[in-house]
Structures are given as structure tokens and as C-alpha cells.
């Protein structure tokens, strides 16, 4: 027993010496890394300085006939909700077949730019009885500010699987609330008071996520050189994946076309 004890002390002293000697070199890089992220670092993703990053640009299109804009009937609180017409947002295709609201992400990246590239704060507004934006992107653990600009009762009902589902009322007088989601996933949200209201919250595990604009374009910047799998997700048409190779300082093209039956 006594021998053992001496050994323990000897070992602990040795360990102390080692950490004392090796410590200094590491701290500087640690600090640099910490400085680079205002948003908490995510497990499985390492932030590094991007010096000669490339970009991925592309356009998402739809091969089928451009669907007609479908008007959604406003049946409740018309003086607030009915100011602007509502259209079905489940598939928005521009005249030149560009597909809007497609979530694009790099699905196999473990290090790259800092999380603050996602923006300091993400706001989800309930305005005119619609979720604005239709799809919000927020990194796991970061705060999502939920605004009620309508001044009437709304509620945020999340249909999440990995995160605990919530259904919180936001009465008219409560202009602002904050929520965060810890697990990456695409969460459908709805308002039970106004059944036409729908949207999505994309909880991300790294900053390489974006959404296509009205004409189907997107860009991911500061991507370290390498070959990646890009994943596209559209709420009605589902998922597609392609490979893209980014060269240092270069721009990779990554266009995809959704077919009617995909």
C-alpha cells in the first residue's frame, strides 16, 4: 500500500511537471481560436483561420413545369393577417425555373470558418401571420430571437425529433422571446392559431449552410480547399447530394436540378 502511495505521488508530480512545461505553447492558439468565435464552438467542428479559402456557387433549378402561385386563404384575424396576400411557400419556382428556399449545406466538413459567420443573432419574425423568413438558419446552442410584430396571439409549435418539441404561446403583448436548440436538425414549425402559417428552423452544426434566393442562386464562402459532399434539401422535393471540389482561392460550381418525381 505504502509503495503504491509513493508511486501515486511520483506519478502526479511527473504529470504536473509535464503539463507545466508543455502548457505555454498551446495557450496562444487556444486564445486565438476562442477569439474567432463569439458563438460557442460546436462538438465535432473545429474553427480555424481561413487564409486561402474558395467558394462554392451554384443554382438550384426545377425541371418540371413552373407551378402556379397558389394563394392561401386567410380565414382568421383578417385585419392583421389579410393585409398582404399569402402564397403557398412549399415550392417557389422563378420564371426561369430557379428553385427558392432550398437549404444547401456541406455535409462532411469538420473544420473551417468561425461560427460567427452565421451572424450574431438570428431573428424569426411573425409578421402578417407568416414566418419571416420562411426558413431560419441558426447554429446549435445559439439564440434565436422570435418576434411577434402582429400584436395578436401566435404560437411557435416545433415538430422536432432530436430537440424537445415545444409549443409556446406568444400573445400579442409579448413582442420578443428567445429560444435555442441544442441538436442539429431541420425543424418544421407551425402556428396552431393560424393553420396556414408554416416554416422551418434549420439548426446547424457548422457555418457552411445557406438558402437559395428567389432565383435559385446560392454561395458558400471561405471554404477550405478540398472535396465535399453538398446536400440540398427542399421541403417538398426532399434531398439531393452532389460532390464538389474546391481549390484554394477558386470557385466551384455546384448546380443541381430537381426533377418532378425526385
Amino acid at each position: 500500500m505504502r509503495k503504491m502511495f509513493v508511486l501515486v505521488i511520483a506519478m502526479s508530480m511527473a504529470a504536473l511537471l509535464l503539463t507545466a512545461c508543455g502548457g505555454d505553447g498551446d495557450t496562444t492558439t487556444d486564445k486565438a481560436a476562442k477569439k474567432a468565435t463569439t458563438v460557442a464552438a460546436l462538438p465535432g467542428y473545429k474553427v480555424m483561420a481561413i487564409t486561402d479559402g474558395g467558394a462554392i456557387k451554384g443554382r438550384v433549378t426545377f425541371s418540371g413545369a413552373v407551378p402556379a402561385k397558389k394563394k392561401v386563404e386567410v380565414t382568421k384575424d383578417i385585419n392583421v393577417c389579410g393585409k398582404e396576400p399569402h402564397y403557398d411557400a412549399s415550392m417557389l419556382v422563378s420564371d426561369d425555373k430557379g428553385l427558392a428556399n432550398v437549404v444547401v449545406k456541406i455535409s462532411n466538413i469538420s473544420e473551417g470558418k468561425g461560427m460567427d459567420a452565421m451572424g450574431e443573432s438570428v431573428e424569426l419574425n411573425q409578421l402578417g401571420c407568416a414566418f419571416k423568413p420562411h426558413i431560419s438558419i441558426v447554429s446549435a446552442g445559439a439564440e434565436l430571437t422570435i418576434l411577434n410584430s402582429d400584436g395578436i396571439l401566435h404560437n411557435i409549435h416545433t415538430y422536432s425529433e432530436k430537440n424537445t418539441a415545444i409549443n409556446v404561446a406568444q400573445p400579442g403583448f409579448k413582442k420578443k422571446m428567445r429560444r435555442s436548440f441544442s441538436e442539429p436538425e431541420i425543424i418544421r414549425i407551425a402556428c396552431d392559431v393560424h393553420n396556414w402559417m408554416g416554416g422551418y428552423i434549420v439548426v446547424t452544426d457548422h457555418p457552411y449552410y445557406t438558402i437559395t434566393d428567389a432565383s435559385g442562386n446560392f454561395e458558400l464562402s471561405d471554404v477550405p480547399a478540398g472535396t465535399y459532399t453538398l446536400e440540398y434539401w427542399q421541403e417538398t422535393l426532399g434531398k439531393m447530394t452532389i460532390e464538389a471540389t474546391v481549390e484554394a482561392g477558386g470557385t466551384a460550381e455546384a448546380n443541381v436540378e430537381y426533377a418532378t418525381d425526385s
Partner: peptide
Amino acid sequence: YLSCFSCHQVGSKKPEGPPEG
């Protein structure tokens, strides 16, 4: 405030919108 009658019916006083809401 809580706007309960936005969804809940009170006798003959029905909420706005279609019944499934």
C-alpha cells in the same frame, strides 16, 4: 392577452376560421 377565444368556442360564440382550427 391570452386571446383564448381565438381558438376556444363558448357556446354559440364560435371562433374565427374553419372548425378544424
